[in-house]
């Protein structure tokens, strides 16, 4: 029976590893390759840790299996009268197996600081590249205006989005911290330019939510009382899943929305489209000038 148990404990890590190896092929893995430069760095970090932990996992489980088999064979009849190895430990071993993991862990700790800083520390935001976007979409902005192109307000159970409106001369206004009469509104449908870092201001109207873009590996809680800037960069012009990742009430699972990354022109056209819809008065012969208040 003891051999069965030895095999049992040796068997399951093999199953675990086989399952993990099969996972990507069966689509049991990341929802697609990360669609942003930051996301790819996060993935790289994930794979690096995966390698380190896999090696450790295999190593420790192998040793565990080995000592079990050794224990099982040492208790076979014939050797039964001898005692176990009398040892209170080994100072040398303790030092080795404390310092080696310590070095590895410190390496992991410091290796990732860059990615974290780029994602969260505001001074490290790619401000220049963001400003290039404003340039391209003709945003009329002062130096201190928000870098954000939209304000996303989470509420139970949807995402309300506010974009700045247009000036009379056709330039895009800057996003103001508070609603403006010319602002454009959308719900559950966030459109922003692709292939460039774009920033949104995240807030919540009621309880805590979390803005989760799995394909971009972006997640940020929307905390009551705070306005949190987050930036991301989508490589491809397509639609991405947006959902809530922090329990926000009974309808937590319902906050299904999308983030559409598109070209600068399409983005402006989308805002124009919103503007037209928002000014719909159902009179066909309306003069074009009634778009502004």
């Amino acid at each position: 029976m003891k051999w069965f148990w030895c095999l049992f404990f040796a068997f399951w890590p093999i199953v675990a590893i086989v399952v993990c190896l099969l996972a990507p092929g069966n689509n049991w893995w990341f929802p697609g390759e990360a669609a942003s430069p930051l996301g790819r760095r996060i993935d790289d970090l994930f794979y690096m840790i995966l390698w380190i932990t896999s090696i450790t996992f295999v190593g420790t489980q192998l040793v565990l299996a080995y000592v079990l088999f050794k224990g099982a064979s040492d208790t076979e009849p014939g050797t039964a009268n001898e005692k176990a190895w009398f040892s209170h430990g080994s100072h040398k071993l303790e030092v080795i197996w404390s310092s080696v993991p310590a070095v590895i862990l410190l390496f992991i700790a410091f290796y990732q600081l860059d990615v974290w800083a780029e994602y969260r520390v505001k001074d490290a935001f790619p401000r220049k590249r963001m400003e290039a976007v404003f340039e391209r979409i003709h945003q009329d902005r002062q130096k201190n205006d928000s870098l954000a192109l939209a304000e996303v307000t989470a509420r139970q159970f949807e995402w309300r989005i506010r974009y700045p409106g247009f000036n009379a001369d056709g330039t895009l206004k800057a996003l103001m911290p508070d609603p403006q009469p010319t602002d454009l509104y959308a719900v559950n449908d966030l459109h922003l330019p692709a292939s460039a870092p774009v920033m949104i201001n995240l807030r919540t109207q009621d309880v805590q939510h979390s803005f989760f873009l799995p394909e971009l590996r972006i997640k940020q809680d929307a905390v009551p009382g705070l306005v949190i800037p987050i930036w991301f960069e989508a490589d491809q012009q397509r639609s991405y899943q947006l959902l809530c990742a922090e329990l926000c009430g009974w309808g937590h699972y319902k906050m299904n929305a999308r983030f559409v990354a598109e070209s600068d022109e399409q983005f402006i056209e989308y805002l124009r489209q919103l503007e037209r819809e928002q000014n719909e008065d159902r009179v066909d012969d309306a003069p074009d000038t009634d778009e502004e208040e």
Binding site: K70, G71, A72, T75, A84, W85, S87, G89, S90
Partner: peptide, 13 residues
Amino acid sequence: NWIGTIWGGKPEF
């Protein structure tokens, strides 16, 4: 250390 404890032991399964 746990693995070290099992190592060389005479476990009853």
